[in-house]
Simulated scan of single mutants.
Amino acid sequence: MPLKEGGTLTSYSNLGAPKGTLSKSRVYVDGQRLTAVKTISIVPTSFAFSAASRVKSDADRLMVSNALDRALCIALSDKYQLVPAGQPADMTIRSVVTDIVPTNKAMAGVATAVTVGTGFVLPIGVPRLPVGLGGLAVEAEAVDSGGVQRAAMVWARGANSIQNKPRVSQVGDAYGLASKFGSDFSRMLIAGKEPKGLDISLPSRQRMQSLLGGKPKYAACDAFGRAPGLVGAVAANYGAPPEWTDKKPKPLMTH
């Protein structure tokens, strides 16, 4: 999955050279300026026109956007106070899906049948068939209250046979990869520098609660729905479309 610029960042000149193997990225982070940040707001992720045209359903695009923003919101809650979009904050995050490779639903169904079926007769799991895999490309930036870019990332990753379970949905892979991007970008903001190597730290208590579908640390995160939790994990093992278990945001009360 190649990196793809969408022309939505304040600047691309600060970005470093492309790095990474599974996930490719170009990043910039002003760690010194981030030390003063206390509050963050997240603008709901949007799709570039070329990316949106590759996914037929508005609901599917919204589901991918929510998964990305939810992952950001939950992870960033470890260090920052999250406030609703549109409210004053020290830092605002804007993300755009610049490209998406739809998952081939028919091949995902075949891969699920092979994986689940062999699981009943073999002592080890069989890798996913390397056919019809999806991918995702995203660019995002964090700007301060004056509109100055303090962090940015252009990121891309394709699904693989080992780490990504087949799901019978056009956005089956993009849905999972969106959460991966949210984790990568938030990790950079929290550390104030480009992350090195795998993240082997244990998740915090608040993050575990949120990932299991519980109440998030900050109410602002409810704008992106709650994580599917254990039910979602079980459904994913059997190739169920993510919309079966994804928890949509609750409508805001107007009175």
Results as ranks from 00 to 15, higher is better:
114 V>L: 05
132 G>F: 11
65 S>M: 07
74 I>W: 12
121 V>S: 05
146 G>Q: 13
203 P>K: 10
57 S>A: 06
116 V>D: 04
251 P>G: 01
110 V>Y: 06
248 K>P: 01
67 A>F: 03
100 I>V: 15
69 D>G: 01
213 G>S: 12
76 L>E: 03
8 T>K: 09
14 N>I: 00
75 A>R: 13
193 K>N: 12
42 I>K: 02
109 G>M: 08
140 A>Y: 00
49 F>L: 12
164 N>E: 08
40 I>Y: 03
200 I>L: 12
101 V>Q: 12
4 K>A: 07
248 K>E: 13
103 T>E: 06
187 R>E: 10
65 S>A: 15
166 P>M: 09
204 S>H: 02
163 Q>R: 13
241 P>S: 06
231 V>K: 07
66 N>T: 06
204 S>T: 15
213 G>Y: 14
162 I>R: 01
205 R>V: 15
140 A>E: 02
37 V>N: 06
194 E>C: 07
91 M>P: 04
143 V>A: 06
71 A>S: 14
21 T>L: 04
225 G>D: 05
138 V>T: 08
224 F>E: 01
212 L>W: 14
153 M>F: 05
1 M>F: 02
48 A>D: 14
180 K>L: 08
91 M>R: 08
250 K>M: 12
169 S>Q: 05
157 R>E: 15
30 D>T: 09
60 D>Q: 13
6 G>D: 04
122 L>D: 05
187 R>T: 15
55 V>Q: 07
253 M>V: 14
238 Y>M: 11
159 A>L: 06
240 A>K: 09
251 P>D: 08
146 G>M: 07
194 E>A: 10
232 G>T: 10
45 T>S: 15
3 L>T: 14
12 Y>I: 09
17 A>E: 07
97 V>Y: 03
240 A>Q: 09
253 M>C: 13
196 K>T: 13
229 G>D: 05
